[in-house]
Simulated scan of single mutants.
Amino acid sequence: MPTHHRPLGRFSTTIAATFTLVLALAACGSAHHDTAPSAESTDTTSSATPSVTTSPATPVSPTTASTGRGPMLTVTIDGDEVSPNAEEIDLDTGERLLVEIDSDRAGELHVHSAAEQLIEFAAGTTNSEIVVNTPGTVEVEDHDTTAVVALIEVR
């Protein structure tokens, strides 16, 4: 009786995707994220220059929140108190999301998109923008508290 072999292509792809997801989620627990290149964001009240770390394929450029262009996420951080709490935002693939962070401390926001992005901010007001190029649901979390500040539905 002949033996039938299943192609491993679909199975291998599933394992690779699962492994990639596990690595991306594990990166949140890591204290160091200095392997990706940085792009600048605009900080209006402190002298430190925060940055957004992304893959080279996802451009992030400085912006000012007062331009009124596109959807906006406003984040307020007071110690361990972070708001909003899981704000739902709808974006089109490739659409820019303006992010304004008003914080009493320096920190990082993690954007769990297909190419993870990192928004570093200093104490004071920091304005930045992100672009998500892959459809799906993307969490934005404060690294220090792990609070989820936004859920972005990218279509």
Rank of each mutant, 00 (worst) to 15 (best):
P37Q: 15
T125K: 08
G29T: 13
D78K: 11
T126Q: 12
E100V: 14
G9L: 00
V132E: 08
H33K: 05
A16D: 09
T125Q: 12
E141R: 15
E116A: 00
A86H: 02
S41W: 09
D102E: 15
V82H: 09
L151H: 07
A48K: 09
G107N: 00
T14V: 10
I130K: 02
A57C: 04
D43L: 09
V140M: 07
Q117C: 03
D90T: 15
T137M: 13
D142W: 11
F121V: 02
T49K: 11
A57W: 02
L118P: 00
T14M: 07
V22I: 15
V148L: 07
P59R: 02
D78A: 08
E81I: 12
D102H: 13
R10A: 10
F121E: 01
M1T: 07
T126R: 13
S12R: 06
A122W: 00
S12H: 04
E141M: 15
E100K: 15
V52M: 14
C28T: 15
L8S: 13
D144K: 12
P7N: 10
H5Y: 07
T146N: 04
H33W: 13
E95N: 05
F121R: 01
I119H: 00
T74L: 04
A48M: 08
T53I: 05
T35F: 09
A114P: 00
P56D: 13
V52P: 06
S41T: 10
E95S: 08
S51V: 12
A65D: 10
T134V: 12
V138T: 14
R6H: 11
I119P: 02
R155W: 06
V131W: 05
D104Y: 05
V154Y: 06
L118I: 04
A16R: 10
T18P: 01
I77D: 05
A36E: 15
S51R: 09
T20P: 01
D78R: 11
T76C: 04
A48D: 12
T134A: 13
T134I: 10
S38E: 12
G68N: 01
H5G: 00
P2A: 04
P62Y: 05
L23I: 12
A114F: 01
A39P: 06
V148D: 01
L21A: 14
S55V: 13
D80A: 13
E153F: 05
H143R: 15
S38T: 13
D142Y: 14
P71T: 14
A150F: 08
M72D: 02
T146I: 02
G136Q: 14
T93D: 04
A114C: 00
